[in-house]
Computed example of a mutant assay.
Amino acid sequence: MHEVKGKDGVGAVMDSMELERQRGITVQSAATYTVWKDVNINIIDTPGHVDLTIEVERALRVLDGAVLVLCAVGGVQCQTMTVNRQMKRYNVPFLTFINKLDRVGSNPARALQQMRSKLSHNAAFVQMPIGLESDFKGIIDLIEERAIYFDGDFGQVVRYGEIPAEFRAAAADRRQELIECVANSDEQLGEMFLEEKIPSVSDLKLAIRRATLNRSFTPVFLGSALKNKGVQPLLDAVLEYLPNPSEVPNYALLHQEDDSKEKTKILMNSKRDSSHPFVGLAFKLEAGRFGQLTYVRNYQGELKKGDTIYNTRTGKKVRVQRLVRMHADMMEDVEEVFAGGICALFGIDCASGDTFTNKDNSGLSVSESKQNPHRAEGPCACLELENGAQGEQESI
């Protein structure tokens, strides 16, 4: 763990540009991945500065869930409102992480109040800090009612314990507030609340997940990234409350072959299944030392090294000679990428927003595709912007 400014001579892994380390801010979005509890998580780190907001826009376009990072000192700032509008536009469910609780002047309660007043979110703490600023020792898990401490030089050893006596009354009040906020946005928990039943831990977690996916509730987590406090519970929450690729409906548009303007919307199969044709979206182009690097989100099927794919905008075909997974500015060659994955290709002539597919010449007519909405064969022209959850609702 390092600071972005790189005072230690190393700097943060995801902020690899020299300019980023000089300025102490993220300038361009960077992709990486991690495995947490045997689940692969693709991560895109985006800038927070208003001048670089297009980097957030094109990243949110392909993400299934997000973590909105707030500063415990600064709270909700101008650009937070812009990012909030972008997440709403793309219907991205999200968690909120209030960072820098170890800084002088940190006030997470004020940041939560600003989320409610400035962003109009139904938000509540799912954690509570044990001390603030230099006294920040750990967090209290309000759902499971236990204290969590982070031992070791880098906070890598997670230790659980009883809630300290002086925090028990405040923790009980915060937990009740959490239940009320979730009950306001989830029908099942709302019924239990009206019947004055005490929800179990699993009931509460399932209700938070449903409300988060509907974007009707925002769980708020706490910690200090530099000290690695609160990061492990946040990763647990990503697995518990954010959707996996197979739970997010994504659509493709199928153009008619007679040049008519009629378009058919097709639901893509986002499961890890190679029997469906490949459909991917180029969402970012980057000039690297090996030429143009094209970041692609795989929405359906399987992309293999050596495959021939078609750009549906230009009709040109190209062979995938090298397939890599990105870890900031480092690359790892891979043989295949399944639905839900993010990869990068070299030597592809395309524009940002182009769709790629392995055009199926099996003679399947457009009318058959209409009747079978789970197949996306044929010349898919583009991917719909509707990659959200269930309809119009008001959640990285």
Score class of each variant (00 low, 15 high):
L239E: 06
K305I: 14
A351F: 04
E336S: 15
F338D: 09
M326L: 15
K284E: 06
N298E: 00
H255E: 08
T312D: 04
M268L: 13
G353N: 15
A339T: 11
D236C: 14
V334I: 15
A287N: 05
P245E: 03
G347S: 07
Y295S: 12
R325V: 12
H255D: 07
E247G: 03
S246R: 05
E257M: 05
T314W: 00
E335S: 13
V296G: 05
Q256P: 04
K304M: 11
R322L: 07
L303M: 14
G280H: 01
K317E: 14
V337Q: 02
A287P: 10
A237F: 02
G280K: 01
G301T: 06
N244T: 13
G340Q: 08
P233W: 07
F346T: 06
L234P: 13
S260L: 03
A344E: 01
L267R: 12
T264H: 03
V324G: 00
L303Q: 05
E286N: 10
V324P: 04
Q292N: 14
K316V: 03
T312E: 00
E302N: 13
H327P: 01
P249G: 10
A328S: 14
V238C: 15
P243R: 10
G341T: 12
R289S: 06
T308C: 09
S352C: 14
H276E: 09
N298M: 07
Y310S: 11
Q292E: 14
A252W: 08
N298C: 14
E257T: 06
D259N: 10
N298H: 00
L323E: 02
F346Y: 08
K305D: 11
V318K: 03
K304I: 09
D273T: 02
K316I: 07
N250P: 00
F283A: 13
E247C: 07
N269H: 06
L235P: 08
K305G: 13
T355H: 06
S260Q: 00
K261T: 04
M268I: 09
K261Y: 01
S270K: 09
D333C: 14
R289K: 10
Q292R: 14
G315P: 11
Y295I: 00
T312F: 05
G315A: 05
G301C: 12
S352K: 05
R297L: 13
F338L: 15
G353K: 04
K284L: 12
E335T: 11
G301M: 13
T355D: 00
L254R: 11
K316P: 03
V324M: 10
Q292T: 15
L281K: 02
T355A: 09
Y251G: 03
K304Y: 05
A282G: 15
A351T: 09
R319G: 14
G291L: 04
P233A: 07
D349S: 04
E335R: 15
A351N: 09
V320C: 08
V238Q: 11
T314C: 02
G280W: 00
R325H: 12
G347Y: 06
